[in-house]
């Protein structure tokens, strides 16, 4: 288990290093995640070496957000003043994002597969 912690934190530290070196405005954890995926793919890390801890953390991701959410109590004044735009815009925009992302995905997939079919037909002819 200590090894699993060690590996995950090594990737997080690598993410921190990249951010420190380049100054890019991206969180170290996202860089660490990309580095981990790449290293798993390259075979530098075996999935079994991190599986237990990684699966545990991913399954309980929601819990780690509770303290940030409690921060709401410091913004109650602003939220009470402008609750309609805040709630309305957040809910509305969340629906828009889900629909637009999903529809674009379907649209592009369809046109890509149509092109493939056309190509195959052309090759046959």
């Amino acid at each position: 288990m200590i090894l699993q912690f060690g590996i995950l934190f090594a990737f997080l530290a690598a993410g921190e290093l990249v951010v420190w070196l380049t100054g890019i405005p991206v969180p170290s954890s996202i860089i660490g995640m990309i580095l981990l995926t790449v290293s798993l793919k390259a075979g530098l890390v075996k999935p079994a070496k991190i599986e237990r801890l990684a699966d545990f953390l991913v399954r309980n991701l929601g819990f780690f957000f509770v303290p940030a959410g409690v921060g709401l109590m410091n913004c109650l004044g602003i939220i009470a003043d402008q609750w309609l735009p805040i709630v309305g815009a957040s809910v509305g925009s969340t629906v828009v994002i889900i629909a637009v992302t999903g529809w674009t995905h379907r649209l592009v997939r369809k046109s890509v597969s149509r092109k493939k079919i056309v190509k195959q037909e052309l090759q046959k002819a």
Binding site: S29, M33, N60, F64, V70
Partner: peptide, 26 residues
């Protein structure tokens, strides 16, 4: 005052996001 304790929970967000690399790899 709450944050003084809460940040120890917050802290695990970072390694948890790194851990998302595993399902992504799969």
């Amino acid at each position: 005052t709450y944050s003084a304790g809460g940040r120890y929970i917050d802290f695990w967000l970072k390694p948890a996001v790194v851990a998302l690399g595993l399902p992504l790899y799969r």
